[in-house]
Simulated assay, not measured.
Amino acid sequence: MRFFKTYLLPRILMYFLVIVVGVTIVFIIPRLLPIDPIQQMIGQITSTGAYLDPKTLDYMIETLKELYGLKGTLWEQYWGFWRRLLKGDFGPSYYQFPVPVISLIRQSLPWTLGLLLTTTVVSWILGNVLGALGGYFPQKSWAKILDVISMVIRPMPYYVLALSLLLLFAYLIPIFPLGGGFLIGGRISFDLRSILILLKHAFLPAMSLILIGVFLWFQAMKLVVQSVKNEDFVSYARLGGLSQSKIVSRYVMRNAMLPQITGLALSLGQIFSGALITEIVFSYPGLGTLLYNAIFTGDYNLLMGIMTMSIFVITTSILVIDLLYPIFDPRVRYR
Rank of each mutant, 00 (worst) to 15 (best):
E279C: 02
L126C: 08
T112M: 00
W111F: 13
P177E: 01
V214A: 06
W79K: 10
A202C: 05
G43S: 10
N301W: 03
D89L: 06
G180K: 01
F90W: 08
L9E: 12
L67K: 15
P54Q: 13
V224K: 14
F27D: 00
I35G: 09
R84T: 07
Q107E: 11
P326F: 09
I149M: 07
Y59M: 14
L13D: 03
K5Q: 14
L57Q: 10
L9T: 11
I42C: 00
L163S: 09
G305H: 03
I102D: 12
I28D: 07
Y78M: 08
E62P: 01
F97L: 04
Y171I: 07
V332L: 07
V228S: 01
L172T: 10
R187I: 11
I271L: 15
R83P: 06
G269N: 01
R31G: 01
S93L: 08
A50W: 13
I314E: 06
K71I: 10
K229I: 05
I28Q: 11
I210V: 04
P177C: 07
F90E: 00
L116T: 05
V224Q: 14
P92V: 03
F282L: 12
F137Q: 07
T119W: 00
A237E: 05
L146I: 00
I295K: 15
P37S: 09
L291Y: 13
L67M: 13
R84Y: 10
R254A: 04
R331V: 01
G134E: 05
V332M: 10
T315Y: 04
I280T: 12
L266T: 12
I197R: 03
L8H: 06
L323W: 12
S47I: 11
T63R: 15
P155Y: 12
P330I: 14
P100N: 13
T289S: 13
T262W: 03
D232C: 09
S103P: 07
F233M: 06
R238E: 12
V152Q: 00
F176V: 01
V252S: 01
Q96C: 02
S189C: 06
P138Q: 08
T308M: 02
T119D: 00
A170E: 03
L163E: 09
M41V: 09
S194I: 10
L17H: 05
I61R: 15
T46I: 12
S249Q: 07
L216T: 14
G43V: 08
V332A: 07
T48E: 12
I19R: 06
V313N: 05
Y94H: 13
Q39S: 13
Y78F: 14
L242W: 09
A275T: 04
K246W: 11
K144S: 05
V18T: 15
G72L: 09
S273I: 03
G269Y: 04
I247E: 01
L86E: 12
G131C: 02
I145Q: 06
F3G: 02
I261G: 05
F328K: 05
I149D: 01
L168H: 10
F137V: 04
V101A: 11
R11I: 04
